[in-house]
Write a protein that binds this DNA or RNA. Structure first.
Lengths: 207, 207
DNA sequence: GTAGTCAGTGAACAACTGTTACCTGAACGG
DNA sequence: CCGTTCAGGTAACAGTTGTTCACTGACTAC
């Protein structure tokens, strides 16, 4: 479905991408709330009015970026949860996948980290809702895991929330460390150690 | 030092406070980057030009807010670290103090959480620098603790970073839960459980 | 008492903002 | 081929922005 590869449609998609990319690159050192519609269109090489052909306003542009960013994150998390092996290996896989995500889509990740607590309610809520889903999935995967057999629901959710938040911590650490290679590997080490410590706590947990 | 209670000086301080408070209340649902100088002065009931008698620009206003917010946080953390008793009690004390801080200065706390990864470099860096100090202090306190005797430096810092970040997680959770009382106590429970889990991991850690 | 300091004001500026109504021309369906 | 659709452009709008300058008048130091 939605092949839609007419000449017009492809051009339309192109400008839409240009708008999203322009916004994304402008957001490297600013926040969505301070980003003007005209700035985006200017950076995209398009007339201001063209914006309205694609988005109702900046809020909508923002929520689209949320969906884009979290689509890849969602995929990443599913990979981790589906991964076999002991918790140690799973932790490594998690950190590795986050690292890849930061390397391949730094702008998207930065956007998520920044706007999670940012000043645009619509975007904030979109991220929060998606993260709730993510936490639930994590919780479900955790539930069907020998280590946490017999845990009550509250404890499972508190752990999954901790893990999701730790994911963001790690992503943020990678972003600020993404300049020097030694900082990068240090961040990797820290994230892995923290996951190991959390896992240790999990093993010795008594509901 | 700096008694300075002339009539003029007190009035000056009053407007300065008015500016800071106006900004703070305006920042309840927006970010610093999107906050205009004129908006602040308007909310403070003062002419736009009066702003310059107190701050060079919005960045400076921002860093002053950072100092204010982190002064209380600094005090809070010192109290926790100085607290005697086992780790369980210390965790309880930590959560309780954060809760108090959120209740007594919600705007400051929200400001910190939002601008930590926010769109104003100067403010972001000011917060990061202060948090580094905080993490170091935590690390020092952790170092002189029987539980973590013999840990190497890297492991201590990874733990203190985790704890500082967890503090922010908790503060953020309290902020979003501050409407309904049952959400509040649930947030308290989650934070406590997470600290307990981390502590368990700490006990069974092997450097 | 008097001269000086200085927090706050008022008016003006060029630049920029989001949004509207209307126009253009290339791709489209039949 | 021809009428229609529609992505994008132009021009204009009323507001708002940060910053400057000169000015006022209550406080201060002497």
């Amino acid at each position: 479905m939605s092949a839609e590869t007419g000449l017009r449609e492809t051009q339309r998609r192109r400008t839409r991408r240009a708008l999203l990319d322009a916004a994304l690159s402008e957001l490297a050192e600013r926040s969505l709330g301070s980003l003007g519609l005209r700035e985006v269109t200017r950076a995209a090489g398009v007339a201001p009015t063209a914006f309205y052909r694609h988005f109702r306003g900046m809020d909508e542009l923002g929520t689209v970026l949320v969906e884009e960013a979290l689509a890849s994150l969602h995929g990443t998390v599913r990979e981790i949860l589906a991964a076999t092996g002991d918790a140690e290996r799973r932790g490594e896989a998690a950190v590795r996948l986050i690292a890849e995500l930061v390397r391949s889509r730094p702008a998207h990740v930065r956007f998520l980290v920044r706007e999670r607590h940012g000043g645009v309610p619509a975007v904030r809520e979109a991220i929060a809702a998606q993260l709730d889903v993510l936490a639930d999935e994590t919780g479900a995967a955790l539930g069907s895991d020998p280590v946490s057999a017999g845990w009550d629901r509250d404890d499972v959710t508190m752990l999954s929330r901790l893990l999701v938040d730790h994911m963001f911590m790690t992503a943020s650490a990678f972003l600020t460390a993404s300049l020097r290679e030694e900082d990068w590997s240090a961040a990797t080490g820290t994230a892995l150690a923290q996951l190991r410590l959390i896992h240790l706590g999990r093993v010795h947990w008594a509901s």
